[in-house]
């Protein structure tokens, strides 16, 4: 399984753009929103937690269709399904690789982009913490969506339609943590709920994703 993770990361690096595109998209969102909303710092500060979370979520969504599509096209997925690794493990590794390539860099760059949106000082720490806790859930849920749509020719749009409603709880709790952090309120409740969703999704969804892959390979 470590071999698979190493391979996926190596592929992402060699293909180029694996890291770059999501980050560039995230940057674009945080630049476009002030252009649309207006430059008043107070307004931006108020909506910053939401914008940053929605931006990170959409950036995550961008690369989801590639989680399984490439392996499906070149036949690797068939071979992986017959290999001695359980398919649940393959799926979990794929989510992990997706997170390292998109979720982790998004988490690290978010505080820099938060400066552009005048996020209040108290929010920075919780922005990073909430993204670090929440983006794994985005990758795991997204992998499930990718598993459902892996055999489809034009799965990209459908994938977004399937995955975005599933992102609702993560988004709500994640943005709430940052909002409360920025306002200096207690953050324990949403933070724990966010962590709970991530833990639950990471523990259970790989089984559903693996089932979906098996059905799609039939």
């Amino acid at each position: 399984m470590i071999a698979l993770l190493v391979r996926d990361l190596r592929l992402a690096m060699r293909a180029g753009g694996g890291f770059g595109l999501g980050l560039a998209f995230f940057l674009l969102v945080t630049v476009l929103v002030p252009l649309g909303v207006g430059p008043e710092g107070a307004t931006l500060a108020k909506i910053a937690p939401g914008i940053l979370w929605v931006g990170a979520l959409l950036a995550c969504l961008l690369s989801l269709d590639r989680v399984f599509a490439l392996d499906f096209e070149d036949g690797s997925l068939d071979l992986l399904a017959t290999a001695p690794i359980p398919l649940e493990g393959v799926v979990a590794v794929k989510s992990a690789a997706h997170w390292i390539v998109t979720g982790l860099p998004l988490t690290l760059i978010a505080p820099v982009l938060a400066v552009l949106l005048h996020l209040p000082e108290g929010g920075y720490l919780w922005l990073v913490v909430s993204l670090a806790l929440g983006t794994p859930a985005l990758s795991v849920i997204g992998t499930f969506g990718a598993a459902l749509t892996v055999g489809l020719k034009r799965g990209g749009l459908l994938l977004s339609l399937l995955v975005l409603p599933l992102y609702v709880p993560t988004l709500i709790f994640g943005a709430e943590v940052v909002k409360r952090g920025a306002e200096g309120m207690a953050i324990a409740t949403p933070l724990l709920l966010l962590a709970g969703i991530t833990a639950g999704a990471a523990a259970l969804l790989p089984f559903a994703s693996a089932a979906a892959i098996r059905i799609n390979l039939r």
Binding site: L148, V168, I172, A208, A211, A212, I215
Partner: peptide, 24 residues
């Protein structure tokens, strides 16, 4: 098969969303 899997996973997330929205 796939829609059944989606329906089951979706149900869990629909309930989660319900509580998340209440909280929000």
């Amino acid at each position: 098969d796939l829609t059944s899997v989606l329906c089951m996973v979706g149900s869990v997330f629909a309930i989660l969303s319900r509580y998340a929205v209440n909280f929000w």
